[in-house]
Amino acid sequence: MPASRPPSMADVAARAGVSHQTVSRVLNGHAYVRPETRDRVLAAIEDLGYRPNQAARALVTARTATVGILTAATTHFGPASTVLAIEAAARSEGYFVSVAALAGDDSASAREVLDQLMNQGVDGVVVVAPLEDVARLIDDLAPAVPVVVVAARPDIPAETSVRYVCVDQHRGSSLATRHLIELGHSRIVHVAGPDGWYDAARRVTGYTEAMAEAGHPARTVAAEGWSADRGYEIGRALAAEIGGADGPTAIVAANDYLSLGLLKAFWESGVRVPQDVAVVGFDDIDGSGFLVPALTTVRQPFAELGEAALRALLDHWSAGAAASTGGMVAVIPPVLVVRDSTAPPA
């Protein structure tokens, strides 16, 4: 074989002493190949360093073995971890991924990105942008390939072919709130994520329902974002109330970044955590256990979420478009991680 070109399927066939068709059967996992023949072909592939030509395979199979990922334009822990988990799950099943980020949190940006992914010939799309506008756009577009949305959407249309997977955001927020209630807190504030995000809305609902069941008044403060600087601004305002007769004794933050801002604002204001106020986050970001105090938070199992999203696509392909049904197909329970930022009220 000349060194000026990469090894071909014909080279593998010649090295293994089999036909071109037999090599193709081995590469495609065909059941009707003798074990000794399969081993000989695989050994030839390894010896030659052969790599299948994906473009040629796509022409034959009408499949590109590529999954498109539409994601929010953010480096925040939740969306970024979900994208990485989907990529790892796809790679383990022999699929590539093509990632495209939204230019904005609106339907026009989502339409542009979907068109880009479709033009690349992806076999399916996973949407990691749990935004109301994006989900409703997908409802209207009815893309020609299977779509899986990672979002805790409560109002999924009954007749949709789109599949949904999520971590149970409602349960996660409820776990955090009940933990504080069980410690003896009753004046608990929820620092909520931005409007238009399904996950943020479900966390609000989980908190308010847990408070209502305990007979405590709910109070939600809108952060209008997910960032630590928004948490810091809110923390500066709340610090003035803590220690007062009606001031909060505990806070459930919509994510760990907001908690980071709260902790800094409280420290600067002389408010002690957890002695003066308890704080619970959401996500369990890297390093949250090394904060002072170590942050009590809700862990999202992102590896399971990525596997569930890819499985939803694989099941759709296996069932075929006519037999495939949409709706919520996987809800993954979160885990409360109790650390040092929560304690009974003084």
Rank of each mutant, 00 (worst) to 15 (best):
R5F: 02
M9F: 10
A13C: 11
S24I: 08
R25N: 08
V26L: 11
Y32W: 05
V33S: 00
R34E: 00
R40H: 07
A44E: 11
E46N: 04
G49L: 10
Q54M: 14
Q54R: 15
A56Q: 08
R57C: 01
A62C: 00
T64K: 07
T66S: 03
T71N: 05
T71K: 13
T75C: 04
T75A: 11
F77L: 01
A80R: 13
S81Q: 12
T82Q: 09
V83I: 13
V83G: 12
I86W: 05
V99Y: 13
L102N: 02
L102F: 05
S107V: 12
E112I: 01
E112K: 01
Q116A: 00
V125T: 11
V126Y: 00
A129R: 06
P130K: 11
P130I: 08
D133N: 05
D140I: 14
D140E: 13
A144V: 15
V145C: 12
V145T: 13
V147Y: 09
V149L: 06
V150M: 12
P154I: 05
P154G: 01
R163F: 01
V165T: 15
V165S: 08
V167D: 02
S173F: 07
S174P: 06
T177Y: 10
T177W: 07
L180S: 15
I181Y: 00
I181N: 02
L183Q: 15
L183Y: 13
S186C: 00
V189K: 04
A192Q: 03
P194K: 15
D195H: 13
T205S: 15
Y207K: 15
T208W: 10
M211T: 07
V221D: 03
E224K: 11
E224Y: 08
G231L: 11
I234Y: 03
G247W: 10
P248L: 07
T249F: 11
A250F: 03
A253T: 12
A253G: 07
N255T: 14
L263E: 00
D276N: 11
G281H: 05
F282G: 11
F282E: 08
D286N: 02
D286E: 08
G287V: 02
G289F: 06
T296F: 04
R299G: 04
Q300G: 03
F302A: 01
F302M: 05
E304F: 04
L305D: 10
G306I: 10
E307W: 10
E307D: 09
A309F: 01
R311D: 06
R311E: 06
S318K: 14
A319E: 07
A323S: 15
G326V: 07
V331W: 01
R339W: 02
A343W: 03
P344F: 10
